[in-house]
């Protein structure tokens, strides 16, 4: 379990994190979404005991990071957004070094390293120098490194950043497998649809504040308070526009191209059903009545825009 309580980090007068309260239960994959500089990496660094908070605290697996950081380090696997590798090490030696650093015996390391290389599809690179691996391979190796001591909690800061589409898909598949292994994972990314696919919950952070949290569908619902509807008609465009403008839940009706009309809708699902029924009764020649699909990208843009305007 991961919990932050009024977590605050200030650099002089700049507040990087502002009273962040977060609770992630065991076995959850939590997606942390935010623009650059929103406070994601700061949160991750505090959770990884690499940075002290100015105020508040955080608990990882029930252990307070400010009181017992040594204990926290044993239960977390941390992958930073930017990291280096020891170039002169071979892949297997690299993992062996970190295994030893976590106190694994030689026998344990010999057992777990091939399994991890298999998990991240690097078995054929076990004798290659780390320096010669591609960016995607290094990312996967770093993920394997963060798993060497079988941590309960994984803190992954933008693990797919800078990867090509194929490498992204490979990384996503590995993370899905980790999810099935029951790890608690907190992961940040700018690729929001990817997060939606693999995360149980999402948190949106902006200017150091957590502005939305919940399941993917809960967050989408937040935006759907203003659904976007597209209606296609064969004729009677003016009559159709007037009909929808008369409805109190309809806002901003706009004429589109090829006989389409677009408007915002504030009503509930039941209200929407009634609106369709009334349109049919009023003999509106509708070819289709379609609610525009919103993805996490739209949700994120909408929510963060709202905060900036506020």
């Amino acid at each position: 379990m991961i919990e932050t309580v009024n977590l605050t980090k200030k650099y002089g007068s700049f507040t990087a994190l502002n009273d962040l309260n977060l609770s992630i239960s065991d076995g959850t994959v939590f997606g942390f979404v935010g623009q650059n500089g929103a406070g994601k990496s700061t949160t991750f660094q505090i959770l990884a005991t690499l940075m002290a908070p100015t105020n508040g605290t955080a608990f990882v697996n029930g252990v307070d990071v400010t009181k017992d950081p040594e204990k926290v380090r044993k239960v977390i696997g941390y992958m930073p957004d930017f990291f280096g590798v020891y170039d002169q090490f071979k892949t297997e030696e690299y993992l062996d070094f970190y295994g030893a650093s976590y106190g694994l015996s030689a026998r344990e390391r010999e057992e777990v390293i091939p399994q991890l290389l298999e998990l991240v599809n690097l078995s054929n690179k076990r004798d290659s120098y780390v320096d010669l691996l591609s960016r995607g391979m290094k990312q996967r190796l770093c993920l394997a490194r963060s798993l060497i001591h079988d941590p309960k909690v994984l803190i992954l800061d933008e693990p797919a950043s800078g990867l090509d589409p194929r490498a992204r898909i490979e990384m996503r598949e590995i993370l899905k497998e980790l999810k099935t292994m029951g790890k608690t994972i907190i992961i940040s990314s700018h690729i929001l649809p990817e997060l939606a696919e693999m995360c149980d919950e999402i948190g949106v952070i902006d200017n150091g504040k957590l502005i939305a949290t919940g399941t993917v569908s809960e967050i989408q619902l937040k935006l759907q308070q203003q659904k976007v509807i597209i209606v296609m008609v064969t004729r009677d465009m003016e009559k159709t526009i007037r009909f929808f403008e008369d409805d109190p839940d309809v806002i901003n009706v706009q004429r589109g191209s090829n006989g389409s009309i677009q408007f915002g809708y504030k009503g509930s699902d039941e209200d929407q059903q009634m609106l369709i029924k009334k349109a049919v009764m009023a003999d509106i020649p509708m070819l289709s009545f379609k609610q525009l699909e919103t993805n996490l990208e739209d949700v994120f843009m909408e929510i963060t825009k709202g905060v900036e305007e506020g």
Binding site: T49, R73, V85
Partner: peptide, 10 residues
């Protein structure tokens, strides 16, 4: 950038 990883070990 190898230090943060080293510092999160035991």
């Amino acid at each position: 950038q190898t230090l943060p990883i080293l510092l999160t070990t035991a």
